[in-house]
Design a protein around this nucleic acid. Sequence first.
DNA 1: CGAATGATACCCT
DNA 2: GGGTATCATTCGG
Length: 218
Amino acid sequence: MATESVAALAADRQLQPLDRSFFARSTLVVARDLLGRFVCRQTADGESAGLTVGRIVEVEAYGGPEDLASHSRAGLTKRTAPMFGEVGHAYVYLVYGMHECLNVVARDDGAQAGAVLLRAIEPVSGVERMRLRRGRASDPDAKLASGPARLCQAMAVDRNLDAHDLTTRDGLWLAAGDGTVADAEIATGPRIGVDFAGDWAARPWRLWLAGNPSVSGR
DNA sequence: CGAATGATACCCT
DNA sequence: GGGTATCATTCGG
């Protein structure tokens, strides 16, 4: 078999969507298992149309109403409804009046709400599209999607994709990627920007790939 | 280090 | 209904 065909088969496997059951586990377990997976974006219109793929290198877990750092602490509202809805869907919101953030809804049976914030990816494919969307010609590749709002800008994700199903190959989805990464590669620490949340702020629910240059600053 | 910038949620009339 | 405090960030000075 030709080398290109083998590579194409491998790439197709890496782009295979994660199925619903992947997200029907505890939010923290899903967050852990998302490291090394791919975020895939297929756009049809505009100068940056095409496929963009990034490898997840940093995430944060957010729980139900009991988690004072989580938006779901407000209960079921128009804004937070996706966090209470079917797992495997997106929760996209605006923060600080100008930035979007992308989460995937994940929780086990019995939990009221939960989602994993995707904080950083490293470019895998379509890096030129990312750079175009970011409009920052001098940034190194590794920093193009290093931070939750940068990730959304680089991947052309906005609130139109709120509640979008991420388990089908349609526009935006999460894919198998490189599979599960080893425990030894993972570092953990408190979530960013949630100092207001009392005891909950200290929980080590931020997870990242140790030493990866695309992890956002702290 | 702090300004930018607007949706949301909540409290009060 | 209307006022306002708050914010899961980023970039430039």
